[in-house]
Design a binder for these strands. Structure first.
Lengths: 133, 133
DNA sequence: ATTGACCCTCCAGTAGGTGGAAGCCCTATC
DNA sequence: GATAGGGCTTCCACCTACTGGAGGGTCAAT
């Protein structure tokens, strides 16, 4: 399997796959002509990586998950731990974004948004209003 | 005002303030000894930047907001436009994170998380289950 | 033999900083 | 006057996770 085939199969861009090889996530063989020769197992691992990344796991977490996946004797508790930590981070991030959203929505509602120069959004950013730190 | 004072006043690290000068967001004067000499206006601008950044505006958006802030003849509609575009991005990001959260929560619930090796989380990542693309 | 679609490597750039080294400057103390 | 400390300076490297592009080899078909 050449890189474009495995790219189509895994949904990852060829550039990304080369990058993943560079950082030692995958280790495809090489053909006589120097082209990368991907096995079914490589393709499987890349698809795994694509799904883990799309769920927001970091590259380092993916590395951990992949090694757990390859380890037939792993404990599911180890996997669950990684997933729960990631869930915590997601929840925290959502909370931060919702706080920004709430503040901004308030300001946007207050701003008449016409041709006049006075603007509660800028006033808040300038610290002229009682805003939340 | 030296950099550490303005850092304390604005809540931004000194390193970040130097970086903001580097990318032309602020232009503090220099004392005879080469130290940056911040005016009240500089301090004000940095505090403005800190608040805009904490609301998630990108550096380029901050640049726009700052120029609108400095422009006494701006239209509030221009500011509102930037804010609304940012709100859209925030909403999209929240949506993405919530989708990840939902998927992961389902998987985590299904995983017994003990010493046994079988794990629905890894099964899903491996593509063994009917998962959402 | 040439075209076009592959593939290769290597370098640089993205956003928004952060960490650290090497080296002035300023004040205080002995 | 020497020294110690803290603060200031510049510059370079590093972080995440890729992405774009230059320059050049390979393959299959015409």
């Amino acid at each position: 399997m050449n890189i474009s085939e495995v790219a189509a199969a895994s949904g990852l861009p060829a550039k990304t796959i080369r990058y993943y090889e560079d950082i030692d996530l995958v280790h495809p063989a090489r053909s006589a002509n120097g082209y990368r020769a991907f096995s079914e197992r490589d393709a499987h691992m890349l698809a795994f990586l694509g799904r883990a990344r799309s769920l927001g796991f970091s590259i380092e977490e993916c590395r951990t998950l992949l090694s757990l996946y390859e380890d037939r004797a792993r404990a599911s508790a180890d996997v669950k731990k990684v997933a729960i930590e990631h869930l915590d981070r997601i929840a925290r991030k959502i909370g931060e974004l919702q706080a920004m959203q709430a503040t901004l929505e308030t300001l946007v509602t207050q701003c008449h948004g016409d041709g006049r120069p006075d603007c509660p959004i800028l006033d808040d950013l300038a610290g002229l209003e009682g805003h939340k730190a």
